[in-house]
Amino acid sequence: MIQLAFSLLVPAVLLLLSFYLLFSKSVSVDSFLLGARSGIDTSFRLLPTLVLLMVGVSMLSASGFPELIGRLFSPLCQRVGIDAALLPLIFIRPFSGSGSNALLLSVYEQNGVDSRTGFLASVIAGSSETVFYVTAVYFSAVHIKKTRHTLPAALLTMAVTVVLAILVGGWFYDKG
């Protein structure tokens, strides 16, 4: 029910706009075309940044970094009672959305989507964002070099979110 309402949101916005296009004198399709044109410019201006980022992320996934992190920290994880299978996901998440989705799928396949680990992985992925990617794209779009406390604040937020996701998610899973 709620899912249906959400899926109707975008068509509803477009429907509203189509009424404006039909009945309002001040709104013409030209403003859509101009705006869309600026979207193209922005996309292509960002391409060089994306190339650099994607090359880095692609190297990182190919190098076996996620598995290495998992192996390095698994003794520590066992002591605190967290499944080490979550670690690659946590470490790749800030860099790459597609990379972390692939890792999430592999957690689903290896541990089961309805296992405790699968559940926690979902909560972690759902409540965190690709911090480095977002920051890099936003600031390189306007050529800003001094980003001040953006990255520390965003990374600290993500760290707290991951801890909360494990605690809150674990509580919800155990409760049923």
Binding site: V13, L14, L17, Y20, L21, S24, S26, V27, S28, S31, F32, L33, L34, G35, A36, R37, S38, G39, I40, T42
Partner: peptide, 13 residues
């Protein structure tokens, strides 16, 4: 393209 266009329509309206 779509969203930048929609945004400028929303602004105009």
């Amino acid at each position: 393209c779509l969203w930048c266009g929609v945004l400028s329509l929303l602004q105009k309206s």
